[in-house]
C-alpha cells in the first residue's frame, strides 16, 4: 500500500509516512501493558481480585466503575 510519489509539484498536504513496525512494536507493547494496568485499578481491583486489602480503592472509584461500564455490584 505504500506509495513513493514523485514530488515534482509541492503538495500543500503532508504526505502521511507510516512508522516502521520494528520501531513501533516495543511501544505498542508498552502502551498496552500500561493501559491494562491502569484500567485494572479503575475497573476490577477489589472486585474479583485483590492486590490491596480492604475495599478503599473500590469504594473511591465506585461511581466511575459503574458509569464506565465495568461489572460491579
Amino acid at each position: 500500500m505504500s506509495s513513493i510519489s514523485s514530488s515534482a509539484t509541492p503538495r500543500p498536504a503532508i504526505q502521511p509516512v507510516a512508522i516502521p513496525w520494528r520501531q513501533l512494536q516495543p511501544w505498542l507493547l508498552f502502551g498496552a501493558v500500561l493501559a491494562i494496568g491502569l484500567l485494572y485499578f479503575v475497573g476490577t481491583e477489589q472486585g474479583v481480585f485483590h492486590l490491596i486489602g480492604g475495599s478503599s480503592v473500590h469504594e473511591f472509584v465506585h461511581d466511575g466503575r459503574h458509569l464506565l461500564g465495568f461489572p460491579c455490584h
Binding site: M1, P16, L24, A35, L39, H62, L68
Partner: peptide
Amino acid sequence: VGLLTATLIYGVALGGIFSMAFAAAYGRL
C-alpha cells in the same frame, strides 16, 4: 473526587493505547 480520579485514569489509559493504535494506522490508510 472519586469519579474524577476514575475518569482521569481511564482517559489516560485509553489515550495511551489509542495513540499507539493511531501510530500503527497512520500512513497505512
